[in-house]
Write a protein that binds this DNA or RNA. Structure first.
Length: 282
RNA sequence: GCCGUGGAAAAUUC
């Protein structure tokens, strides 16, 4: 059963909903995971009616199924339906509360943030995810003071919450505070390292950025792209180009960054050339 | 053992 469930999830993730359905139908003894996996497959592909009918056809509802449905509605712009699901749930665990909090926070209007804050305060239980969700909301809106305040009052921090805080320092280029956070972390990964690199990039600190970049255990498109912007800030167009040419992989953002290095440094010919090479534009 | 919630890069706006 679990092998089939995994298949359902994988098909769902790569958009082959029909395959997911077929695998699901072939499972003789479906369990919760099978149902939720199919539900998730439909929801992830924007097929809400089908997701809803899977949901309604389930033998019983638990908080995981309801939460998946709630998120499905929200991600497809149906906020009121999401809200309806949440408040009619019989059982809510932290993850359901967190999911609903994230839904509110992702609506950009300011009154949603207030609503989110109120929800946060009325929640029966909060975990790191709860705190990080709200922290991210303040960070996204550039409310650095609130972000830091929240971070400092968190009962516990983990890799992700620290990374979110680091990322919040990027806009202001607050290297001092960012370093404090980074040093305090007991665990780091490519994402947190890239977040710190982005702070260096913001301030154009070439030496430190390079040192940090070379100490990173692993690199990917994002970290390389960030390093390119460091070079760009220092008007080191050739170095940027060298890195660009040697990186293992490109995407729309990395190509756009390289393009901007050229345009911002008055090298229009090369910009045009890069532009023409791009497989897609936005 | 398999499902649902939070974190990093470009330009544009602030």
């Amino acid at each position: 059963v679990f092998v089939s469930n995994m298949l359902v999830q994988r098909y769902g993730r790569c958009g082959s909903v029909e395959h997911a359905r077929r695998v699901f139908d072939s499972i003789p003894e479906k369990n919760f995971f099978s149902w939720v996996s199919l539900l998730g497959a439909y929801a992830a592909n924007g097929r809400l009616d089908e997701a809803a009918s899977v949901f309604n056809g389930m033998p019983e509802w638990n908080s995981v199924a309801c939460t998946a449905m709630l998120v499905g509605y929200a991600q497809n712009g149906q906020l009121e339906k999401a809200r309806g699901v949440f408040w009619s749930m019989k059982q809510r665990d932290v993850a359901s509360w967190n999911a609903f909090l994230a839904v509110l926070v992702n609506e950009r209007e300011d009154h949603r943030l207030l609503e989110a804050r109120k929800l946060f305060e009325t929640m029966p239980a909060r975990d790191v995810v709860t705190w990080t969700t709200l922290l991210g909301a303040y960070a996204q809106r550039n409310h650095l003071f609130n972000t830091k305040e929240l971070f400092d009052s968190m009962p516990a921090r983990d890799l992700i919450s620290c990374t979110a805080m680091l990322a919040a320092y990027e806009d202001s280029g607050d290297l001092r505070n960012a370093s404090v956070v980074f040093k305090s972390m007991e665990e780091r990964d490519i994402i947190s390292c890239s977040a710190l690199l982005a702070v260096y990039a913001q301030g154009g600190h070439l030496e430190q950025a390079l040192k940090h970049y070379h100490s990173m255990p692993e690199l990917n498109v994002i970290s390389c792209t960030t390093m390119i912007t460091v070079y760009s800030k220092n008007r080191l167009v050739n170095q940027a180009q060298q890195l660009f040419d040697s990186m293992p992989e490109h995407n729309l953002v990395s190509r756009t960054s390289m393009l901007c290095v050229f345009t911002l440094n008055d090298r229009l010919e090369e910009a045009k050339h890069e532009f023409d090479k791009m497989p897609e534009w936005n």
